[in-house]
């Protein structure tokens, strides 16, 4: 590319990188404080804690009833991933392969739940779920979380399906494969990498989805992120280290899946859905 040659230009480049560096240092710093604090015995006026211990993890495990919370998180996330795949992939296939009147309208229908922030549609949605008697139940939480993830899967999968040559399917039919056989033997293997990537992204997003779960969860259907919110909200009731121990558990859960997801997708896809 074009090399920056003027002194002012070099200064500008330096300033930009300095800014990025400052941002990253602070970002890593705030993550590190959580980790360090979760292992500290006491930490007040020094750079590092007085001593280190792992006992907060044990106490967090009991105090916050983490087994129940992790179980609920697992149920919600598992169901959301499965259902958004089942609802989203066929719809994406239809959107990618067929042109029909009103397609733009359907596309808008799928775009809206992703563009409108969860807290905005979450309150009316929670109200409806209360009316239906689903609020507070695991099913209510799952349904609420599906609202942005189903469109997400559709929008990620459409370009992926479009790049698969439809002639592959026609060829399979020419060789006598029935619809079901074509689907299981030809389409699914071809689509699998895309489905995997989309569902991993759904998984990461659902673990971290605070607003919708918060608005619809009851005492038995809290996920990890909502439990963390309540713990931080009620800071002072419990030891800060205990809260941070839970935060670390949450972080590990999220980041492990993120790292796995990043093996299949580009980091920018987490924000921008798909390559243009």
């Amino acid at each position: 590319m074009i090399r920056t040659q003027t002194p002012l230009g070099r200064l500008w480049v330096w300033a930009v990188w300095l800014l990025v560096g400052f941002f990253i240092v602070n970002l890593l710093g705030l993550i590190a404080t959580v980790v360090v604090n979760s292992f500290s015995t006491r930490w007040f006026t020094t750079w590092l804690p007085v001593g280190f211990t792992t006992r907060w993890y044990l106490s967090a495990w009991e105090e916050f009833q983490l087994p129940d919370i992790l179980m609920a998180t697992f149920e919600v996330v598992g169901a959301v991933v499965l259902l958004s795949g089942l609802l989203g992939v066929p719809a994406a296939y239809a959107m990618a392969r067929r042109d029909f009147p009103g397609k733009r309208f359907v596309m808008l229908l799928f775009l809206l739940p992703m563009l409108v922030p969860p807290i905005t549609f979450g309150i009316p949605l929670a109200t409806v779920l209360y009316q239906a008697g689903l609020a507070g139940e695991v099913w209510g939480v799952i349904l609420a979380n599906l609202v942005p993830t189903v469109p997400f899967v559709i929008l990620v999968m459409i370009p992926f399906i479009q790049q698969i040559d439809p002639r592959v399917e026609q060829a399979a039919r020419v060789f006598g494969a029935g619809t079901l056989r074509m689907f299981t033997n030809v389409l699914v293997p071809l689509l699998l990498p895309g489905i995997l990537a989309a569902l991993l992204l759904v998984l990461v997003r659902t673990i971290a989805m605070f607003e919708l779960t918060f608005l619809t969860a009851g005492p038995t259907s809290q996920t990890l992120v909502v439990a963390l919110y309540y713990a931080v909200f009620a800071a002072g009731v419990r030891a800060g280290q205990s809260v941070d121990a839970m935060a670390v558990i949450y972080m590990i859960t999220t980041l492990a899946w993120l790292l796995l997801a990043l093996r299949f997708v580009n980091p920018t896809q987490i924000v921008t859905r798909a390559k243009r």
């Binding site: 959580v34 990461v204 971290a208 605070f210 992120v225 935060a247 972080m251 999220t254």
Partner: peptide
């Protein structure tokens, strides 16, 4: 982005 606002708040 992945960790979300709640964890960032705690940090």
């Amino acid at each position: 982005i992945t960790l979300g606002t709640v964890l960032v708040a705690e940090g």
